[in-house]
């Protein structure tokens, strides 16, 4: 059995125990998935403080619903979907918080302090892309993040965002076009 299979087996066991009400098992699942959930939340809402709230609430929602989790999908897929839904339910609260301008330790831009686990982004492109992504309107950012970063289908995006597939495609088109203009016409990232 490969190490990946062992991990999946262990996770399966943790999920089963958590579904039976074992808080320690669920906390272990939180420990395993905290960074990926926080990353997804941060990419969706482009705000560290709000990403923290979204992550916390997503895990709490998952805890309440884990009895219904049938294990057809991976736990990570399931928690990602809950995180996306939670991010959307926080939209209005986010607007309110911005006006309060409360200083917080998590308010630095999402584009900073990434872990060493970096992908293949060229140095010239990484920062401008992260900044441009954060600057997109939320309706466009959420679609391009789910489609081009997390490879969701248009149908999945439409379902979760409660929009039509056509609207999802239109938003993706606008988001890509906007990033292309920002990165090549305005900042001239020169990342080709």
């Amino acid at each position: 059995m490969s190490s990946r299979e062992v991990l999946r087996e262990e996770e399966h066991e943790l999920v089963a125990r958590a579904a039976g009400g074992d808080q320690a098992a669920f906390t272990e699942l939180v420990r395993i998935h905290q960074h990926e959930v926080y990353t997804l939340a941060a990419r969706m809402v482009a705000d560290r403080e709000l990403a923290y709230d979204v992550s916390q609430e997503a895990f709490v929602r998952a805890w309440r619903a884990i009895g219904k989790f049938r294990g057809d999908a991976k736990f990570s897929t399931w928690i990602h979907r809950i995180t996306v839904n939670t991010a959307f339910s926080h939209r209005d609260r986010r607007k309110r918080k911005r006006t309060e301008s409360l200083d917080s330790v998590y308010q630095e831009p999402v584009s900073e302090s990434l872990s060493p686990e970096r992908g293949g982004l060229s140095a010239t492109m990484r920062e401008p892309l992260a900044v441009a992504l954060d600057a997109l309107p939320e309706s466009l950012r959420s679609v391009i993040v789910l489609k081009d970063v997390y490879e969701w289908s248009h149908t999945e995006i439409a379902e979760h965002l409660d929009i039509s597939v056509t609207a999802a495609k239109v938003r993706l088109h606008r988001a890509r076009k906007s990033l292309r203009i920002t990165l090549w016409d305005e900042h001239k990232a020169g990342a080709e």
């Binding site: 905290q34 960074h35 990926e36 959930v37 926080y38 990353t39 941060a42 990419r43 990403a51 923290y52 992550s55 330790v105 998590y106 999402v110 302090s113 990434l114 872990s115 686990e117 970096r118 992908g119 293949g120 982004l121 060229s122 492109m125 990484r126 892309l129 992504l133 391009i144 081009d148 970063v149 997390y150 490879e151 890509r176 990033l179 292309r180 990165l183 990342a191």
Partner: peptide, 16 residues
């Protein structure tokens, strides 16, 4: 653009 966005999937932002 799509390649760089796809690469973001393997980047992790450390949770507090």
């Amino acid at each position: 653009l799509r390649r760089h966005l796809g690469a973001l999937a393997s980047e992790t932002i450390e949770a507090p």
